[in-house]
Structure formats: structure tokens, C-alpha cells
Amino acid sequence: MTRFAARIEVTHRPGILDPQGATIERALPALGWSNVTEVEVGKSIHLVIEASDEEAARAQVDEMCRRLLTNPVLEDYRLELDALTAEPAA
């Protein structure tokens, strides 16, 4: 079994309002950054999962995203996996 670090980036689906991003976008020009557009505030979920291989880990985290971690009406997500050092055999 291998441990994988999963980073899930959750973003708003197209057309879903992002009031936090909009507010930040309105605030930045006050500090002189009038050249900024398309500010978005999402969330980032990190976890470590143990699985036989990367494909199995990805399948499980994808299912977590569909069933719990994201709401498909509101959110999209992007998943990145990195293998951590394999545990020595017990």
C-alpha cells in the first residue's frame, strides 16, 4: 500500500455567484491594483489516503468529492495526487 497526498481545489461552477471574490475584486483597486479581474475565492481540501496505487486512490477521492466534499450544483473540483514515501512492510 502507498500513501498519497491529495489536494482538492474546489471552485465555483460557471454562473455561480462568488460574493467573496466579487468583494475582494472591488477592494483591490483601493490599494492601487486596478488591473485585476476575475478574482475567485474557492477552497482547498488536503488529505492523505492509503491505496494500492494512484488509480485506486484517485477513484476513491473522486467518489469522496462527488458524495461529500463538493456539491455538483455549485462547485467544480480539481484533484492532484502525490505519492508519499511508501510505508516499510510491517
Partner: peptide, 10 residues
Amino acid sequence: PGALQKNAGL
């Protein structure tokens, strides 16, 4: 159906 997102006026 649907979902409830943050109020438009924050």
C-alpha cells in the same frame, strides 16, 4: 432540486 448559495449581497 438545486442548492442554496450565499446571498447575492454578501
